[in-house]
Nucleic acid binder design. Structure first.
Lengths: 180, 180
DNA sequence: CGGTACATGTAATCTGTTACATGATTCA
DNA sequence: TGAATCATGTAACAGATTACATGTACCG
């Protein structure tokens, strides 16, 4: 039960439509918590009926009408009390490790291929994160308080990807010693 | 759709009951893919009706009867063809990052507390992994092929935890500069 | 006497994914 | 002309979590 809180968090700095929220969940917060537009529209209704957000309906011409959501005081209080609760993280479910547990029982090339593929993804991710770092967080010591948490998240992402890229190299080396 | 394959994988080396499988999913494979006993019993039924596993009913006295599951040839084939399919990983959903995105809007002590708590968990995890490494994977170069993938998973776990512990230190340092 | 281990399950609910549905505008 | 962007949603299904349910044996 934390997608609602992720949405409230995204609304801290700016009012957003469901559509714009869904885009945010593709980048930024979405690097650490992803959600589809279907989920977001569903949750926004729930949050609205609970008083956590306000809606402003904005008629448009040429495009469908907008519903711009904003955080209410009650929404802020929901965040405040949620912050004190225990932090849950469902351990990442990653099929790659199941595949690795199959080494020695299935054709090794397929596992190697999966690791190579994964490394490409990690490299891409790392490049993206570094680009964001260079653009917006070049001097972390002078960051306003409000940005420090976001920066730390990005830093976590960078380190994770770095670790993963290096691990892929080591994994490929060891997998190369497995007889086919 | 990969819990079935995780179960088949766990059955590669030994026949197990649903109960024992659930325990495996608390350690070993479970470090990278967790599942509750309810899920496992459900999936075992499905796998059985699809011919991926055999059941041997073992009457016991004093305890409920056992159903010992073993992998069939068809089960092995299911793994073989699954291995070639694309590897999915749902990005880890971690509330800690949502909390970090709240820095500057909620009481900072709570966020700091959450990071400290998380660091303790990572340290514990790291110690556990290292214990397993020392016990079973002291000389990775002489490992039989069948164990190499498992070792690589463990190595990934160790590196991830190490990275996380270090990051927590850096995070705590930067969070200490946030005005309350 | 109380807790843990063994051993299996059902039912309800909550989350997440996939597919379907609509429709104008802008850009190549 | 066709794809992408803006903008909202419904419906069905799959997957995960929580609660409930039962019952013996063994250890301290």
């Amino acid at each position: 039960m934390s997608l609602p809180h992720a949405i409230l968090t995204a609304l801290l700095d700016e009012d957003l439509t469901g559509y714009a929220l869904a885009k945010q969940f593709d980048v930024s917060l979405g690097f650490f918590w992803q959600a589809s537009h279907q989920q977001i529209y569903r949750e926004l209704k729930g949050l609205h009926s609970m008083g956590g957000v306000n809606v402003l309906e904005v008629p448009q011409h040429g495009k469908p009408d907008k519903r711009v959501y904003s955080l209410t005081n009650q929404g802020r209080q929901m965040l405040d009390s949620w912050i004190t609760q225990s932090t849950r993280h469902r351990g990442a479910k990653d099929e790659l490790f199941i595949k690795l547990f199959n080494v020695g029982s299935v054709p090794i090339e397929q596992v190697t291929e999966a690791v190579k593929q994964r490394q490409i993804e990690h490299v891409r991710r790392l490049e993206l994160y570094r680009k964001i770092e260079a653009r917006s967080y070049a001097s972390p010591s002078t960051l306003p308080d409000r940005k420090k948490g976001v920066y730390l998240s990005l830093l976590a992402g960078i380190r994770q990807e770095q670790t993963a890229v290096t691990w892929c190299d080591d994994a490929l080396n060891l997998l190369a010693t497995v007889k086919p």
